[in-house]
């Protein structure tokens, strides 16, 4: 396409004739072509506008002039100023696009599109100027002939390149064309913050593990229930207080605390208010972002103390409290504990 500098045929031919390897010649010719096309672009920057003026069928105006003219016409016709301005802008944009379109083929050799219509006609000037300035304005046929000649020369010299096929031969540099579609900023279109997790399929990996796990729990519970009967004492009698009276095991830690503090503190304030509140508050108080154990020593210490204290109180209330909820040694005095 027009953007692709291709290779500079003259340089290519010259290097081939000098006996350079084809690969080197192609690379150097490409570089030369790129240099030349940069020059040509720089010089055609003004030229394109001029061409648009000279050859454009719309009356030879710059987009700004078009905008002004259309705006005036519309206002004279009685259109509101806002509408007129918008329409004028659109007309200017159209004119600009048309100018661009007509100047584009100009960068190609004129012979490429013999029936190119108005666009090609408008482009002639640019093509001629490029031809004068840089000397790369060859028709494809001319290029082909030159390449064929060069390659034929090499073939006569015993080279392996037997690609001379007359008009069917592609001219050098044609088989690979690249087009720049967009410039992407260095930050990229898609922002990826975290790194991709190492993941596994839920089925079969997770579901299999879960199934085994719940089968194991069921089996354990089944066997345990078959072997160990759940307690059922005599009929409830509000007039006969068992000694000791114990709460279910998960409340025995609280019952143990009742021995040390006033019930309002041990029975209600701590377990029902402070306990849940403290638990709920944990994520909002612990602002340490790290999840690594070695960086959470304080949190680990506090929570481990909480766990140890709970376990100690529960065990003590369960196994070390006998009649009257007084202290007993389970190995000496026996155990008063029912699940």
């Amino acid at each position: 396409m027009a953007e692709d500098p291709g290779i500079d045929q003259e340089t290519f031919d010259r290097l081939i004739e000098e006996g350079q390897p084809e690969r080197v010649a192609r690379a150097k010719a490409k570089a030369a072509a790129a240099r030349k096309s940069r020059q040509a672009e720089a010089s055609s920057g003004n030229g394109a506008a001029a061409d648009g003026e000279a050859g454009g069928g719309g009356g030879g105006e710059t987009p700004e002039q078009v905008q002004e003219r259309v705006f005036k016409e519309l206002v004279d016709d009685g259109a509101p100023e806002r509408v007129a301005r918008a329409k004028a802008k659109a007309a200017a944009a159209r004119a600009e696009k048309a100018a661009e379109k007509s100047s584009e083929p100009a960068k190609q050799p004129a012979g490429a599109k013999s029936g190119g219509g108005g666009g090609a006609a408008a482009g002639n000037g640019a093509a001629n100027r490029a031809g004068d300035g840089t000397g790369i304005a060859l028709t494809p046929e001319q290029r082909q002939q030159r390449v064929a000649a060069a390659l034929a020369g090499r073939a006569e010299g015993g080279g392996p390149h037997e690609r001379t096929g007359g008009t069917e031969t592609k001219y050098a540099g044609q088989e690979h064309t690249h087009r720049l579609l967009a410039m992407v900023p260095p930050t990229g279109i898609q922002q990826i913050r975290g790194k991709q997790d190492d993941k596994a399929y839920t089925w079969p990996h997770l579901l299999t593990a879960e199934f085994i796990c719940l089968m194991a729990v069921t089996a354990f519970l089944f066997v345990f229930s078959a072997l160990a009967p759940a307690p059922l004492r005599e009929l409830a009698n509000p007039n006969v207080t068992p000694n000791p009276s114990k709460a279910p095991w998960y409340f025995l830690g609280l019952q143990e605390m009742l021995r040390y503090w006033h019930p309002m503190v041990a029975g209600v304030t701590i377990p029902l208010l402070l306990g849940p509140l403290a638990l709920v508050a944990i994520p909002y108080l612990d602002r340490n972002p790290s999840m690594r154990p070695e960086r959470r020593r304080f949190a680990y210490t506090l929570f481990t103390m909480f766990l140890v204290a709970s376990a100690a109180l529960t065990l003590s209330g369960s196994f070390f409290r006998g009649p009257g909820f007084n202290w007993t040694w389970p190995w000496a005095d026996g155990i008063w504990f029912t699940l």
């Binding site: 409830a236 009698n237 207080t241 009276s245 114990k246 279910p248 006033h262 309002m264 041990a266 209600v268």
Partner: peptide, 29 residues
């Protein structure tokens, strides 16, 4: 849930455990 279930057998173990538990709640300020 566990605590409410504890009462349902209506044996000595059940009502006295619940007696102890609910008497704690009675100390709410």
């Amino acid at each position: 849930l566990a605590f409410t279930g504890y009462l349902l057998p209506w044996d000595q173990l059940a009502i006295w455990a619940v007696q102890v538990g609910t008497s704690m709640a009675g100390f709410t300020p």
